[in-house]
Computed example of a mutant assay.
Amino acid sequence: MEITFQLNGKKITRSIESDTILLDLLRELKCYSVKRGCETSNCGLCTVFVNEKPILSCSTIAARVNGAEVVTLEGLQDEAKAFGAYVADEGAEQCGFCNPGFMMNAIAMFRENPDPTDDEIREYLSGNLCRCSGYEGQLRGIKAYLAYKKGEVQNHVTQ
Results as ranks from 00 to 15, higher is better:
115 D>F: 05
2 E>T: 15
73 L>F: 01
9 G>M: 02
53 K>Q: 13
159 Q>L: 13
70 V>Q: 11
121 I>M: 12
1 M>P: 11
99 N>M: 14
21 I>L: 11
22 L>Y: 07
97 F>I: 04
34 V>W: 06
4 T>Y: 06
110 F>A: 05
13 T>D: 03
34 V>H: 07
79 E>L: 07
126 S>T: 07
116 P>M: 04
153 V>M: 03
123 E>S: 13
4 T>G: 12
8 N>K: 06
108 A>E: 06
122 R>M: 11
78 D>T: 14
46 C>N: 10
45 L>N: 13
33 S>E: 09
78 D>R: 13
57 S>K: 11
62 A>I: 05
130 C>F: 03
139 L>V: 06
104 M>I: 13
41 S>N: 15
75 G>V: 08
158 T>I: 02
84 G>K: 08
118 D>L: 02
69 E>V: 15
124 Y>C: 08
12 I>L: 08
23 L>R: 14
119 D>M: 09
47 T>E: 09
109 M>D: 08
41 S>L: 00
9 G>P: 02
122 R>L: 12
108 A>I: 06
25 L>W: 09
44 G>P: 03
112 E>N: 12
39 E>Q: 15
36 R>A: 12
125 L>S: 09
41 S>A: 15
130 C>D: 07
34 V>N: 10
137 G>H: 04
110 F>I: 04
81 K>M: 07
